[in-house]
Amino acid sequence: MNHNIYIYILIMIGVTYLIRMLPLTLMRRPIRNVFLTSFLYYVPYVTLSVMTFPAILQATASPWAGAVAFVIGIFAAWRGANLFKVAIICCVIVFALEYLFVP
């Protein structure tokens, strides 16, 4: 089956917008259900973790460079580096390692 890229994009935009818009316009009271609030609290960390590893190993030309960037990125974030710094540190490490070791 052939899929239309514009339909894909409109679905992404529509769903993303509704998620952000509906609580803001409809909610007047906080969520009380403990399971639901806990679930929603953990979702971002779980999704981001699952998407980061092992995908970071497959994103680079050499999986070893990705692995080192992963470990040092975690270390830098643990030591308080902000979003921008961690992103740049990871890029620089991959570039340097691949420049030195990948022919």
Binding site: L48, A59, A61, G73, L83, V86, F95, V102
Partner: peptide
């Protein structure tokens, strides 16, 4: 391709920077 390879990890760097501070 070296530069593309390096830049493609910036997204994962951002993910790491979001999940690590609350883990601490």
């Amino acid at each position: 391709s070296r530069i593309v390879s390096a830049l493609s990890v910036s997204l994962y760097g951002m993910f790491i920077a979001i999940i690590i501070p609350p883990a601490k």
